[in-house]
Design a protein around this nucleic acid. Structure first.
Lengths: 348, 348
DNA sequence: ATGAAAGCGCTAACAC
DNA sequence: GTGTTAGCGCTTTCAT
């Protein structure tokens, strides 16, 4: 009689159902059924097969399963960048939900390049994933070319955008309430007594920057404050950020409150204010938009608008799984809005 | 005659070779060959098939390809955490190399849990990836149970560890020269005139903490400085970090130089020193071990040991691809060491 | 120049 | 209770 141990040497690195079957003198289907505890198979055979499988550390090949079931249990993610606290929080949120539902993550990085994004989309939608979560590349937003996504939507491929989304509404997406965030940030500064407000924002093709500015302007107007055009700095990250922010302080009049649409701009502005010998928040108050780490460690610590990246990732995944689950059912695109809140620290 | 356009409506969402074949009245193998420009197929047929495929946006199913070729072109990654600047830099390094060689990334997060890590390993090695990059979970390091990895190594599954690696040497790995880093950090403090050095480190099961401390002690000894046992703080992140660091200043004698084995500890220590009314670096100099963002934005900015996470990711991937490429060849485990360097800022 | 058949690993409907 | 067969989408050897 052949003992399990005596076989060890003959077995190759990775066993599959066929090998188990031939080794045990049964058919592959018997093995397959036995391994899923099918009552079609006798208790004895089941026991024997399972023991054997366990001993040889059999694990079903997921590729074969995916192909057969037309389901990969993988979610694809395309993000502009991963070395970015906000995005890593989003991924963490995605992972927590996905993992809970036995989904794995396939992550691609577009580096904000249109071409890479197109490649990523093609790669991921060739059968490797069941659905796609995307934060659109800056270059794509600039070009306004969303053809690669439209194709997916036509094919009814499960697709959810988050944070940086295409401007048209007919897609599923999860966004931050950037307008309200900008508004609240500005209101906070005004309530702290600021009268001459400046904004550090992004070029106009970056949707989130524009929206935050919209909220900013809304608050300015509502509270009847003047808007100084030279206090509106649009930073182009292709050039030196510090230099661009510096222009704010090279004028006759300087602001007494600064709203930065992200954490980095806020932190740099703070350094510059201090270098000028001015005090934060006494001379100039600063508030940033962020989900980062820096804010807690600047001196003074930075008041910010919390973005809740983790929540965004979780909600986007919930939505995507819904799409995957009811793939055939007709439904209309859904937008989930994540609200923000002011986290008051020392800079205001 | 059937025009391409007239077919559009009848074609389902996603076309495959079989559909193209039947639609064009040829065999699947002809289509397959034509699409790869095989000279076996006549120029005309090739042209026709390619045009058709392009029109219907045919893309080969990667699952089927992987199954057939026994090659997924995917690299699996298991990391303890993603919301961590160092790890996201490592991933970025991995991605840059992987992408260049047409590999995709499947990322799992162990959350420093042994059980999750085991699950991740099982999931990823069931055929979904060609190789694995792993930074080991804290809990696994504590338990010292590496059975799940040993199995892979026995099966000669391509596997490379990075940063947090198993203590035994018989594995491929990429590590930071933590001892030298700790030594250089300490030497830097000493050169700046510090005489009473303290260290903020991790519990003893975290390898990197231990190694950095080894370097620290080596420098202390070499320069003939005294080591005060109460200046050796081992922080357990299960409890309040701030409180633990505070103990350093609640004694009769306080240090004049602090070496923190990571950025967060350094930044918190700096805040505490300042809260005590002391000056950094005049009263107490501080140096941190890191690859983070915080250092640039503290006041004063923080002198650190740069870890080069990106480089680590890139080197690990190079090594892994080597393993994948020469899978059968016998070779002995290789260790790559990434050197660090002091980035001097204002805190020392 | 084209097609049939087998097989990558697995499962499920359908024999027996 | 067990086995045969077909098929998920693709490629490749071997006919024709």
């Amino acid at each position: 009689m052949v003992t399990l141990e005596s076989l060890l040497d003959n077995m190759p690195k990775k066993v599959n159902i066929k090998m188990i079957a031939s080794e045990l003198g049964v058919s592959p289907s018997t093995v397959s059924k036995a391994l899923k505890d099918s009552h079609e198979i006798s208790k004895e055979t089941r026991k024997k097969i399972k023991a054997f499988a366990k001993f040889y550390n059999y694990k079903p090949n997921s590729l074969a399963l995916s192909l057969r079931n037309q389901k990969t249990m993988v979610i694809g993610i395309i993000i502009p960048d991963i070395v970015h606290h906000f995005f890593s929080r989003v991924i963490s949120g995605i992972e927590s939900i996905a993992n809970h539902k036995d989904y794995s993550l396939m992550i691609c990085i577009s580096k904000d390049s249109y071409e890479k994004e197109v490649q990523n989309v093609e790669m991921l939608t060739n059968g490797s994933v069941d659905g796609l979560l995307v934060s659109v590349a800056k270059e794509t937003l600039e070009k306004e070319n969303f053809e690669h996504f439209n194709q997916l939507i036509e094919q009814e491929f499960p697709l959810v955008f988050f944070d940086r989304v295409p401007p048209h509404s007919q897609v599923d997406k999860v966004i931050i309430d950037d307008i309200a965030g900008g508004y609240n940030a500005t209101k906070h500064l005004i309530e702290k007594g600021c009268k001459k407000l400046a904004i550090l924002t992004t070029p106009s093709h970056v949707t989130v920057g524009v929206k935050r500015e919209t909220g900013f302007l809304k608050a300015i107007e509502e509270f009847g404050l003047p808007m100084n055009a030279s206090f509106d700095i649009r930073i182009d990250e292709k050039f030196d950020i510090k230099k661009q922010i510096k222009e704010l302080f090279s004028q006759n009049e300087i602001p007494d409150g600064i709203f930065a649409v992200n954490e980095t701009y806020a932190a740099i502005a703070m350094k510059l204010v201090q270098e000028k010998g001015l005090h934060v928040p006494k001379d100039i108050a600063i508030i940033g938009f962020t989900d980062g780490l820096i804010s807690k460690f600047t001196s003074p610590t930075l008041t910010t608008i919390a973005q809740h990246g983790q929540t965004m990732g979780a909600k986007a995944t919930d939505l995507l799984l819904e799409l995957i689950f009811q793939k055939d059912k007709k439904r209309s695109p859904k937008t989930t809005v994540i609200s923000t809140n002011v986290v008051e620290r020392e800079s205001t």
